[in-house]
Computed example of a mutant assay.
Amino acid sequence: MVIDLEMKAGECLIFSSLNLHASHSNTSDNSRRFSFVGRCTANHIKVAPYGKDLYST
């Protein structure tokens, strides 16, 4: 089943990353889009290679 959801400014959608998902281009007047990804892992799990975050500035 495929469901299109059009979000209004300020709205929030929460779903599992196990859901197959995608988004269309942002056509709003405000060209910014924000997303937040959270995850829980055990202490012994290394998420980034060698335990270092490659994307930090």
Rank of each mutant, 00 (worst) to 15 (best):
C40F: 09
E6R: 14
M7I: 15
C12L: 13
S25E: 14
T57V: 08
F15Y: 15
S35T: 15
H21R: 15
S35E: 14
K46R: 13
N43W: 08
M7Q: 11
E11L: 04
G51H: 01
T27M: 07
R39W: 11
S56N: 08
D53A: 04
H21E: 02
Y55T: 10
S56D: 03
S25G: 05
M1C: 09
K46F: 05
R39N: 04
T41N: 10
D4Y: 12
H44I: 09
N19G: 00
P49S: 02
S23Q: 14
E6K: 15
C12H: 08
N43M: 04
T41G: 02
G38T: 15
K52F: 02
A9G: 09
V47Q: 08
S25L: 12
T41D: 04
G51Y: 01
R32W: 07
L5K: 15
A48L: 01
F36I: 15
S31E: 09
A9S: 12
N43K: 14
R33E: 05
I3M: 09
T27W: 02
V2S: 08
T27G: 03
N19P: 00
D53F: 01
A22I: 10
G38D: 01
A9E: 12
V2P: 00
S16M: 00
L54Q: 04
C40H: 04
N19F: 08
E11C: 02
N26K: 11
A9C: 03
Y50L: 08
S23D: 08
E6N: 11
L5N: 06
S35M: 10
R33T: 12
I3D: 05
S28F: 04
K8P: 00
G10L: 02
I45V: 15
P49I: 04
K8S: 09
L13C: 10
D29P: 02
F36L: 13
Y50R: 11
D4C: 07
L54C: 00
F15N: 04
F36H: 10
H24A: 14
H44S: 09
I14V: 15
I14W: 01
Y50C: 03
E11T: 11
G38M: 06
D53S: 06
T57L: 05
H24V: 10
A9V: 12
G38K: 00
P49W: 00
V37N: 08
K8V: 04
L5D: 01
C12V: 15
K8E: 12
R32V: 11
F34C: 05
K46G: 01
S56F: 02
G51W: 00
F36Q: 07
I14E: 04
S23K: 13
L13H: 02
N30H: 12
Y55A: 03
K52I: 09
S28G: 13
V2E: 10
V2K: 15
H24E: 12
G10P: 00
G51S: 01
H24C: 05
D29G: 11
L13T: 07
V37W: 01
R33I: 06
M1S: 14
K8H: 07
G38Y: 03
G10R: 02
I3V: 15
